[in-house]
Simulated assay, not measured.
Amino acid sequence: MTLTADRINGLRDDVHEQGWTHLAGVGTLPDELLEVLRYLGEPRRGTFWAELQLVTYTGSSVERSVAESDHVLSPHTDGSFEPDPPELLLLQCLQPDLPGYGESRLVTVYDVVAALPAETTQLLREPRYHFFKHEKGKKAHAIGPVLWQLEDGRDAIRYRHDQKYQIVGDCEQTRAAIADLAAVVLGLEDTHPAPLAAGDVLVLDNRRCLHGRSALSGQVARQLRTA
């Protein structure tokens, strides 16, 4: 795939305006994903991150890994438990599931804020939530707000709350705010369907766009490469 100046600028504009963009026909090789990445920034490691990594359906149980199981993967941002979560996330489809299964689904922070009562939004902006991950013998923990504003005034979100990750409030009100947010995200998870063919890449602003997927068929080894 050749990334022309117009396509690069369009990619950046789309991510800036809506929080994500879908690139069709990029290819399935690591170098093809890195080519896209080079125009956007440099990969960096975190507590659990390699520069490139694979997410493959292995038939494992949810107790081992939600992403590797056939269960629904609820919309979330990546690295919620990191002190400094990644700003951009790239998902390159290597092998899709059967039609109708394992399809990516996106929810933007705009969708979330518009659906929440103002008082809940205000509670979620307080910098006293605990973000946990416990998996494969590793533990990580960060503290901060769920919602905040970027320097240009746009809303941002840090959110993952499922079988392996938890957000914990420090009092009854903040715990209720998390429960309300979880219900809103669940209700919005079909807002932006993004089915991926082999060779497609999703570029996500990890601060403004949650991503998830529908349940897997269990018959195909669906595989993504992430950066």
Rank of each mutant, 00 (worst) to 15 (best):
V146K: 08
H141C: 05
P145M: 02
Y129L: 01
L186C: 05
A177L: 12
E151W: 07
H141I: 00
V185G: 06
A194Q: 11
D162N: 12
Q166F: 11
Q166S: 12
A156I: 15
I178Y: 12
L181F: 08
Y129F: 15
K133R: 15
K136G: 04
F132C: 01
I143A: 11
F132M: 01
V146G: 07
I157M: 06
Q149I: 01
L147P: 15
A179C: 02
A140H: 11
H134R: 15
E135D: 13
D155R: 00
V168C: 04
D180C: 08
I157S: 04
K164E: 09
L196K: 09
G199Y: 08
D180Y: 02
H141D: 08
G137C: 10
P195D: 08
G137R: 10
D162F: 09
P193M: 06
K164L: 04
L196H: 08
V146M: 05
H130N: 03
L181C: 04
H192Y: 14
F132R: 09
F132L: 04
L147A: 07
V201A: 08
R158V: 13
C171I: 00
I178K: 08
Y159Q: 06
Y165A: 08
A176N: 07
A197E: 12
P193F: 06
D200Q: 10
P195W: 10
R158L: 01
V146D: 06
A197C: 12
H192C: 12
L196V: 10
K133A: 10
Y129P: 00
Q149K: 12
V168G: 02
A176S: 10
V185P: 03
R158F: 02
D180W: 04
V146P: 13
R175F: 02
W148P: 08
A183H: 10
D155C: 01
A182S: 14
A179L: 11
R160Y: 05
L186N: 11
L186P: 00
K136E: 14
R154C: 05
D152L: 05
H192E: 04
G187M: 09
L181M: 14
V146I: 15
